[in-house]
Design a protein around this nucleic acid. Sequence first.
DNA 1: GATGACCGTTCCATATACGGAACGATCCGT
DNA 2: ACGGATCGTTCCGTATATGGAACGGTCATC
Lengths: 190, 190
Amino acid sequence: MHHSFMDSGRQTPRPALETGTHDVGRRIRLLREEHGISLSELARRAGIGKATLSGLENGFRNPTLETLWAITAELGVPLASLLAADTTSVIRGTAVEGVLLQVFEDESVTYELYRLVIPAGSTQVSPAHHEGVTEHMTIFAGVLNAGPVNAPLLAGAGEHITWRSDVPHIYATVGDEDVQASLLIRYPRP
Amino acid sequence: MHHSFMDSGRQTPRPALETGTHDVGRRIRLLREEHGISLSELARRAGIGKATLSGLENGFRNPTLETLWAITAELGVPLASLLAADTTSVIRGTAVEGVLLQVFEDESVTYELYRLVIPAGSTQVSPAHHEGVTEHMTIFAGVLNAGPVNAPLLAGAGEHITWRSDVPHIYATVGDEDVQASLLIRYPRP
DNA sequence: GATGACCGTTCCATATACGGAACGATCCGT
DNA sequence: ACGGATCGTTCCGTATATGGAACGGTCATC
């Protein structure tokens, strides 16, 4: 944004509302640049205004679902991928038995992949973790109730659940079958 | 503001725009009912208008990101879960059937997390991916022989294998049990 | 050093998403 | 039967997200 000095007499650019809006904008800009197309070009192809896209990428707009759909459709990514990164957390409970299979250290993020076995009948609560951490579980056997303590999600064999771990979260088996699952924890670096 | 003259008397209820809006509304209503709270109550807690929520649940509105965040925060679910239908895509090779559970886009790398089911007795060969791509499988049931075609690795339930997929690679079941596994593919960006 | 094509940003009138209030319906307790 | 509470919907003025049209900047080609 090399627009000279300070752009005096103009309409007040609305201050970016929440951090989330910034993140979505940043991700759109990244994706667009990966595709190697200009802002004008993407706006044209997606059938939206350049002003809209510009404001959105810079975090000054609060876009409409329709707008986001138009953009993601053109970029060929699921809309959810724009919202993927959030959350916090930490680890490790005691009732849950986990084996660390692999750690991925990348520039701005670390992933840890675990294989979990949770004995039938057990419940474990983990405290809130750092902001930005997310947990992603895939259930292969049994039924698990997991997620934020005030709104856990239920998943059976073959299902997948995701939550932000910046609030206390719980793992509780349901039924009398041991739960077998994989857990991927994502730690963005500040 | 400049609300013009030709603003005819009535405000016609806008026809629901796309199917996607309907789906999001339906999912919100379902989640709300699961929580056992009324529309009025949710609107109050989330700090949005009843009119907004009503119109949204019925598919007559094109909500703003801000509005969606307020609602999902109150319901305790990630916003992406409202768009779940867009996230799941199925890949199907000759033998392997996989559901894409999640995509992580980070600065210099992308991860894709799949859940796989490979019917007993099947074999599939996949062509090489770009250089630097690696695959990481966790086996939950059955026995799998997978990896580079000239040096595949054997893994049974509870085991984990990793290989570089910049060469042709193979997936072959061993024994007569279906293989259940999770597959994490890591794509570094050039 | 023009000219023209394109870029990203900003200005602005218009369209529309927003919340507050009014509404009829339902369900109490009295 | 009657208030009063709460429900979901609709009405409507206001706030704001939108796209089109400037605008200034950069980069070619002449």
